[in-house]
């Protein structure tokens, strides 16, 4: 898994400070439990990158994009506060990309 971090100016109006984009070797996802496992790995990655303990990642919803893509959204909490969102992109049930946004004022600044 290869991840990049950025702070795009275009997301400032949404009070998003950090964007993490991770590209993967396509991985089959037929059961949502498989994504939960992936989400847990991403949570650990974010925890380390942001230098924050006590992160939680919770499945929120999924939505179709076109006919091949499905976005699975997870919400990230630090203790009880909502601090960001992860979206896992699948194409024909293969996980191809993970994208997490973290609000300003969270973690390292």
């Amino acid at each position: 898994m290869e991840c990049r971090i950025s702070s795009p100016e275009a997301l400032v109006p949404k009070r998003i400070k950090h964007v993490f984009i991770c590209d993967h070797e396509p991985k089959d996802v037929f059961f949502i439990e498989e994504l939960h496992e992936h989400a847990s790995l991403i949570k650990d990655f974010l925890s380390e990158a942001l230098n924050l303990r006590d992160l939680r990642i919770v499945f929120s919803e999924n939505e179709v994009i076109g006919s091949d893509y499905i976005l699975y959204s997870y919400r990230i909490f630090h203790r009880e506060s909502y601090v960001g969102t992860c979206r896992f992109v699948t194409r024909n049930n293969k996980l191809i990309k993970s994208l997490c946004t973290v609000s300003e004022g969270v973690g390292f600044e």
């Binding site: 950025s6 795009p8 100016e9 275009a10 997301l11 109006p13 949404k14 964007v19 984009i21 979206r87 992109v89 990309k97 994208l99 946004t101």
Partner: peptide, 10 residues
Amino acid sequence: YRDGYWEALG
């Protein structure tokens, strides 16, 4: 090139 709103989200 510079990302806009949705481009910054992939």
